[in-house]
């Protein structure tokens, strides 16, 4: 799935003027209109994840932060297309970090909204089937996994994300942290991500981020994670 999204994002980055089929984006919510990334609708209301995540956080996070990544990604994509047209290699290289950061921000948040859900829509219900087995094989139990995941989140020095990823070579799952908006691409497939940027929790939890990491499991949508797991 990430490979499809990546291709799509890359394609829209490289040929911003070319039409891109939104349904091939690989994520239900990720749409690309005429090569432009657009903010996906949340699959639930802003207040639906309370009390784990406040409605105010969700509103700002989705309508402001995510929107800024989308807008900035489109800007960088256009500039990249121009630079390609001009065959200006230096300009293309200068734009790479912006593509990575804003494109990553768009991808990460899109995946994040999908892998959360209100408890009324299955949020917090433990994983089943093959993903559950893979987690138990790697971590012993779901609780042990959550403990390790929360330790990884707490260990991020600065802004970043923690992900449960699947190694596309070995198919096993593991926890990885990524700095800033570095997306899960390449060898690893994103299964479940938690945003550890301060904007993801500060209005509600301030410096008590461990409380956010603990509470967020109440609204994790394991069904979405299962669909990503191969």
């Amino acid at each position: 799935m990430s490979a499809i999204l990546r291709t799509s994002a890359l394609r829209s980055a490289l040929r911003a003027s070319a039409p891109t089929v939104s349904t091939r984006a690989g994520l239900a919510g990720t749409t690309f209109v005429r090569g432009k990334a657009t903010l996906p609708d949340l699959p639930y209301d802003y207040g639906a994840l309370e009390p784990a995540i406040s409605g105010k956080i969700m509103e700002l996070h989705h309508s402001k932060h995510h929107q800024t990544y989308v807008t900035s990604f489109n800007n960088a994509s256009e500039q990249l297309a121009d630079a390609r047209q001009r065959e200006d290699i230096q300009a293309q290289i200068v734009l790479q970090p912006l593509i990575n950061f804003h494109g990553g921000g768009h991808i990460n948040h899109t995946l994040f909204w999908e892998n959360l859900a209100p408890t009324s829509q299955g949020g917090g219900e433990p994983p089943k089937g093959a993903l559950s087995k893979a987690i138990n094989d790697s971590y012993g139990s779901l609780d042990a996994f959550k403990e390790k995941f929360n330790a990884a989140l707490a260990g991020i020095q600065g802004s970043g994300w923690a992900w449960l990823v699947q190694d596309t070579q070995t198919e096993s799952v593991q926890i990885k942290t990524y700095a800033n908006q570095d997306p899960v691409v390449g060898q690893f497939r994103p299964i479940l991500g938690i945003d550890a940027w301060e904007h993801a929790y500060y209005l509600q939890y301030q410096n008590r981020k461990a409380e956010y990491f603990k509470a967020v499991w109440d609204v994790v949508n394991w069904k979405a994670a299962e669909k990503r797991f191969k």
Partner: peptide, 13 residues
């Protein structure tokens, strides 16, 4: 787009 469940009131003073 969903309607916001809370409005952006000037902050926490």
């Amino acid at each position: 787009m969903r309607s916001p469940s809370s409005s952006l009131v000037p902050l926490l003073f």
